[in-house]
């Protein structure tokens, strides 16, 4: 079991939550905008605390209301690729990539896989949307995560840029054993990338 998640959060009248158990590969959280897909990712990452439920990945408990387990984000080993990338503007691409890394050992290999090796000395603000997205994926991968959280990784990219990122994600899915939880509102994306699809 890769993901074993059942979380629920009540904010005013709105109830946000998801419950799913999925195996290896890419789990796609699919649903229309505003249904709370990103909130579910944030609850798994430890950035938002659910009201109740649990979140386990590869058998490791990250959050369990009943067992009073609530790991802080830095101990959850999540590689979170945010929709708005959240690259550190005051660090060059190389320093962004290495922020969560133990050493530089996997830098060259990861940069080559994501086709960002030529960007290492650039500042984040000079990157295109697709480049920034791939750097964000690289930064998450180099932090040695146990699973990946991907929030709309293809959103607001033109077709060519989206295709670059899509191919990088497919290489990642087929080349690593990292469980991935991917949020999208695009059925084609869900179809192409997902091993399991969860509708919200």
């Amino acid at each position: 079991m890769s993901f074993d998640v059942a979380v629920q959060l009540t904010r005013g009248d709105a109830r946000i939550g998801a419950a799913f158990q999925t195996g290896a590969g890419v789990t796609v959280l699919f649903g229309r905008s505003g249904v709370g897909k990103t909130t579910v990712l944030n609850m798994v990452a430890g950035l938002i605390r659910p009201d109740k439920g649990h979140a386990r990945v590869n058998g490791r408990t990250l959050y369990d209301r009943n067992a009073a387990v609530d790991l802080p984000p830095e101990r959850r080993r999540a590689g979170y690729v945010f929709q708005e990338t959240r690259l550190f503007p005051h660090r060059r691409v190389r320093a962004n990539l290495l922020y969560g890394a133990e050493d530089e050992a996997r830098l060259a290999e990861t940069a080559a896989m994501l086709d960002i090796a030529h960007l290492l000395d650039r500042w984040p603000r000079t990157l295109s949307g697709g480049e920034a997205r791939r750097v964000a994926i690289g930064r998450a991968l180099l932090s040695d995560p146990e699973f990946l959280l991907l929030d709309e990784p293809l959103a607001s990219l033109d077709a060519a840029r989206a295709d670059e990122v899509m191919r990088a994600l497919e290489r990642l899915r087929d080349g690593t054993r990292l469980p991935m939880l991917l949020v999208t509102h695009d059925p084609a994306e869900a179809e192409r990338l997902g091993n399991h699809v969860v509708r919200l």
């Binding site: 830095e74 959850r76 979170y80 922020y99 932090s143």
Partner: peptide
Amino acid sequence: RLEQAARTLGA
């Protein structure tokens, strides 16, 4: 949100 990103990276 940048600090949140840093936290998910292990800081």
